[in-house]
Simulated assay, not measured.
Amino acid sequence: MTASFTQTDRVGKVLTGTLTLKKPGKIRFQYEKGVPILIVGDGKALWFLDYSVGQKQRWPIGNSPLGVLLDPTRDMTKVARVVPGNDPRIISVEAADPKHPEYGRITLVFARNASAPGGLMLQGWVALDAQNNRTTLRLTNQQFNAPISDGTFRFNDPRRNSGPRR
Score class of each variant (00 low, 15 high):
Thr135Trp: 01
Arg28Val: 03
Asn63Met: 04
Arg154Leu: 10
Glu94Gln: 15
Thr8Cys: 00
Arg159Asn: 09
Gly119Glu: 02
Asp71Cys: 03
Thr136Ala: 10
Ser64Pro: 00
Ser52Gln: 13
Thr73Gly: 08
Ile37Asp: 07
Thr6Glu: 15
Asp75Met: 09
Asp150Cys: 11
Val109Phe: 07
Tyr51Asn: 10
Glu102Gln: 15
Leu21Tyr: 03
Val53Leu: 11
Pro36Arg: 04
Gln7His: 05
Thr136Cys: 01
Gln143Arg: 15
Gly151Tyr: 11
Gly124Ile: 05
Pro24Thr: 12
Asp150Gln: 13
Val68Trp: 06
Arg166Pro: 14
Gln123Leu: 13
Pro147Ala: 12
Asp42Asn: 15
Tyr103Pro: 08
Gly104Ala: 04
Ala111Trp: 05
Thr73Glu: 12
Gln142Tyr: 03
Phe153Pro: 07
Arg89Leu: 11
Leu49His: 01
Gly54Cys: 10
Arg105Pro: 02
Ala95Lys: 00
Arg58Thr: 00
Asp157Tyr: 06
Ala127Asn: 10
Val40Asp: 03
Ser64Val: 02
Thr152Ala: 08
Leu46Trp: 00
Asp42Tyr: 01
Arg165Tyr: 11
Leu38Met: 13
Val11Lys: 11
Pro158Trp: 06
Ala146Gly: 09
Ala80Tyr: 10
Ala116Trp: 04
Leu46Thr: 01
Ile91Glu: 10
Pro65Cys: 09
Ala146Glu: 14
Leu66Ile: 14
Val53Thr: 14
Pro117Gly: 05
Ala111Tyr: 04
Lys33Ser: 13
Pro147Ile: 05
Leu15Phe: 07
Gly25Phe: 01
Gly124Cys: 06
Asp129Ala: 11
Pro101Thr: 09
Gln143Ala: 14
Ala80Val: 11
Asp150Arg: 10
Ser64Asn: 09
Thr20Val: 14
Phe153Val: 06
Lys23Pro: 09
Val83Tyr: 13
Arg165Glu: 13
Lys33Thr: 07
Leu21Pro: 13
Pro117Met: 12
Thr20Gln: 08
Asn113Arg: 12
Gln123Ser: 08
Arg74Ala: 11
Trp47Ser: 00
Pro60Arg: 00
Leu70Thr: 05
Arg134Tyr: 02
Ala146Asp: 12
Ser92Glu: 15
Phe153Glu: 04
Met76His: 14
Arg58Tyr: 01
Asp75His: 10
Leu46Val: 10
Leu122His: 06
Pro24Met: 03
Asn145Lys: 13
Arg28Asp: 02
Gly119Lys: 06
Gln57Ile: 00
Val79Thr: 15
Val83Phe: 13
Leu137Trp: 09
Ser52Asn: 10
Phe48Asp: 12
Leu19His: 03
Val93Asp: 06
Asp50Thr: 00
Phe5Thr: 08
Phe144Asp: 07
Asp157Val: 03
Ser4Glu: 15
Ala45Tyr: 00
Arg165Leu: 12
Val126Arg: 14
Thr2Val: 11
